[in-house]
Design a binder for these strands. Sequence first.
DNA 1: GTCTATAGAGTGATAGAC
DNA 2: GTCTATCACTCTATAGAC
Lengths: 186, 186
Amino acid sequence: MSTQDRLIESTRELLWERGYVGTSPKAIQERAGAGQGSMYHHFKGKPDLALAAITRTAEELRGAAERALGGAGSAYERIAAYLTRERDVLRGCPVGRLTMDPDVVADDRLRAPVDETLGWLRGRLAQIVQEGLDQGEFPPGLDPDETAALLVATVQGGYVLARSSGSPEAFDTAVRGALALLRPHA
Amino acid sequence: MSTQDRLIESTRELLWERGYVGTSPKAIQERAGAGQGSMYHHFKGKPDLALAAITRTAEELRGAAERALGGAGSAYERIAAYLTRERDVLRGCPVGRLTMDPDVVADDRLRAPVDETLGWLRGRLAQIVQEGLDQGEFPPGLDPDETAALLVATVQGGYVLARSSGSPEAFDTAVRGALALLRPHA
DNA sequence: GTCTATAGAGTGATAGAC
DNA sequence: GTCTATCACTCTATAGAC
C-alpha cells in the first residue's frame, strides 16, 4: 500500500472514530506512519485529504448496501437483508456521522459525497418498494419515497440510540419495529 | 442572567452548533462575555461546564416532547403531534447529536443525561403505543417497545437526512413515511 | 517523495493580582 | 467574583534540505 493510500485509509478510520473536527493532520500522519512533508506533498491540506477519504468511504458504503439490496428474494426480503446486514453498530455510520460535523456541512465539496450517497440509498430503496407495490406485496397506498426515507432514517437514528445507550440492542429494536410495520401480512 | 447562567447558555448553543470536540472554553467565554478566570471560578473545567449545559438541554427537550405527547387526542394523534412539532430541523437534535461526539460517549458522566433522555422518550412513546393498543387503535400484534424505538430513530435519522441535503424536506418525508405506516385505517 | 525546522494561532488550564 | 498573565501543548500549514 502506497503512502498516499495509507494516508487515505488512516483518514477514513479517524473520520469514522472522531469526525472531521476531531481529526488532526498530525494524528493522520502518525497512524499512516508518514511525515508532515509527505502528507502535504500528496494532498493540499486537511479538506483535500478528507475529500479523498470520504469519497472512498461513500463508494464502499454503496457497494455494501447494493450487495444486500440487489440480492435475490422479494422486495420485503431484500429490505430486511439491508436493514439486518452485519454492522459495527456502535461505531455508527461512517457517512451519516459526517452530517453532525459543522465543518463538513459548511463545505459544499465535503457535503456533496455524503448527500449523494444518502440520496442514492433513498432512491434505491424507493425502487425496491415500488417493485413490492407492483408485485402486490405492499398495500397500494404506500408511498415509495416516504417509505425509503423512513428506512434510511431508521438506520441512521438506530445508530444514535445504540451509541447513546452503549449497546447495539436499540438499533436492532428500531429495525424490528420498521420491519414489523412493513411486513406483508395479507 | 448571572455570569454562571450566561456561561451555561453559551455552552448549550455551542454544543448544539459545533459539538463537544468543536467547542473551546475560549469560544464559550467570548460568547458569554466572561473572562477565563470567571469561567474557571464557576466550573472545574470544560467537562464540568458541558455537563451543566447538557443537563439543562435534556430537561428542556423532555419538556418540549411531553407538551406534544401529553396533549389531548388519540394515541396516533399525540404521536403525530410529537413527530410534526415545530423543529429547527437543520440544527439537528441538541441531545442526539452528542452521541456522535467521541469524547461525550467515552465519558459516562456526559453520556448519562443523553442516554436517560432518549431512554425516557422511548419509554414514553411505548406507553402511548400501548394505550393505542388498549383502545383498539393499532393492530394487536404491534410491539410498543419496537415501535417506540422506530419513532425515535425516525426523528434522529431524519435530522441526518436533512442536514445531508441541506433542506428540512427529507425529515418531513421520513416522518410522513412513519405516520403512514402507523395510521389506523380499519 | 520524504524529512526536519519553523511558524502563528489556538487549546485547556493555572496563578495571582484586584 | 472577575481580571490579566502565563504555561505547555496542539493545530494546520509552509519552507527548504536531502
